[in-house]
């Protein structure tokens, strides 16, 4: 295991209680300070533009994973990011055109506090946490990635969604200067994705701003992207510029491109095959063999209840 679980060593066992408490307070203050510092640094355009700047975060105890992490190099050089190219190797080369700072997010629709928010204002009040999640692409490959971010629910609650907010729609930035492939018609730009409000508020759903302890590299969806680990990767929309609370189920870009192939839910499900790829098994990047694909990508315990009584073959 690469990451030690906090529970592996209890500091109180090896340090006297008073010293331990003192140290904890000191550490908390330090973390508070460096979060502020790192958020300040986060805005420095030169560093943030290429990712890689260290972030301060705590490790979320319940969201660790006892699997070998996919190497940083693979996570950052094998990306489906059609705004740059349909080649998975190209985004790492091309993504320097994206300018993730300054960055604004337009919050719209059925909520009490719509508005145009600067990214740093959305992040400031929250402590970042690291969570290791499996990522399963609909194309049949997978990774294990240590993300840094905050629970989407905690961010969305601040906008005070009303009872009309049945779904949340997300949009990637639309800017052909920063995303050259948006000049082409590979997909209907801007990229749109959506979640039910229950899915969005599920504790697993993460708004990520970093990976491997660093600011998100551009090709991974800087400066802020969704991570919905029990759904196929294309649901985890990158470089988010718009969040809208809506009453009707949004039509995602992939649903528009081919409604026969891509549904709204796109839950990882080895029993529901896709017209292009059998979803029974997957190849973990870095391995030669194939792994059995897990129901809801291994997160059934946390999310299966969201779909109880639903025909998952129809609602794919």
């Amino acid at each position: 295991m690469l990451i030690k679980r906090p529970s592996d060593i209890a500091s109180s066992e090896i340090t006297s209680e008073a010293v331990y408490k003192d140290r904890r307070r000191f550490l908390q203050q330090m973390i508070g300070l460096s979060v502020a510092a790192s958020l300040g640094g986060y805005l420095s355009p030169v560093q943030a533009a290429y990712g890689g700047k260290p972030l301060t975060y705590s490790k979320a105890k319940e969201f660790q994973l006892d699997e070998k992490l996919t190497p940083y190099k693979d996570v950052t050089s094998y990306n489906n990011f059609y705004e740059f190219s349909t080649s998975k190797q190209a985004p790492a080369r091309m993504a320097h055109t994206l300018k993730p700072t300054p960055w604004n997010i337009s919050v719209e629709g059925a909520c009490a506090k719509p508005g145009n928010y600067a990214l740093e204002d959305l992040l400031k009040p929250q402590a970042l946490e690291e969570r290791i999640y499996r990522l399963r692409c609909v194309e049949g490959w997978s990774m294990a990635i240590p993300w840094v971010g905050l629970p989407l629910a905690s961010m969305l609650k601040r906008f005070e969604p009303t009872s009309d907010a049945k779904y949340v729609l997300f949009e990637t930035l639309y800017d052909t200067e920063q995303f050259p492939n948006q000049r082409g018609r590979v997909l209907d730009w801007p990229y749109v994705e959506g979640l039910t409000i229950a899915e969005a508020m599920n504790p697993l759903t993460l708004m990520a701003v970093g990976l491997y302890g660093e600011v998100l590299p551009n090709q991974n969806g800087a400066p802020m992207r969704l991570v919905v680990p029990w759904k196929y990767g294309f649901k985890s929309i990158k470089s988010i510029a718009k969040i809208r609370f809506v009453e009707k189920m949004p039509t995602s870009s992939w649903m528009k491109a081919s409604s026969r192939e891509y549904g709204f839910y796109a839950n990882v499900n080895p029993q529901v095959s896709h017209p292009r790829w059998s979803q029974k098994r997957e190849r973990r990047i870095g391995e030669w063999g194939r792994r059995e694909t897990l129901m809801f990508n291994g997160y059934a315990e946390q999310v299966a209840h969201l779909y109880s009584g639903m025909d998952l073959k129809k609602n794919f």
């Binding site: 292009r276 059998s278 029974k280 098994r281 030669w288 194939r290």
Partner: peptide
């Protein structure tokens, strides 16, 4: 041999269900 790693259930499914 590599892509399907000799999982014949997937290969057969591919041949019958995936026109490409």
């Amino acid at each position: 041999g590599l892509d399907k790693f000799l999982y014949w259930d997937e290969i057969v499914e591919d041949i019958f269900e995936r026109p490409f």
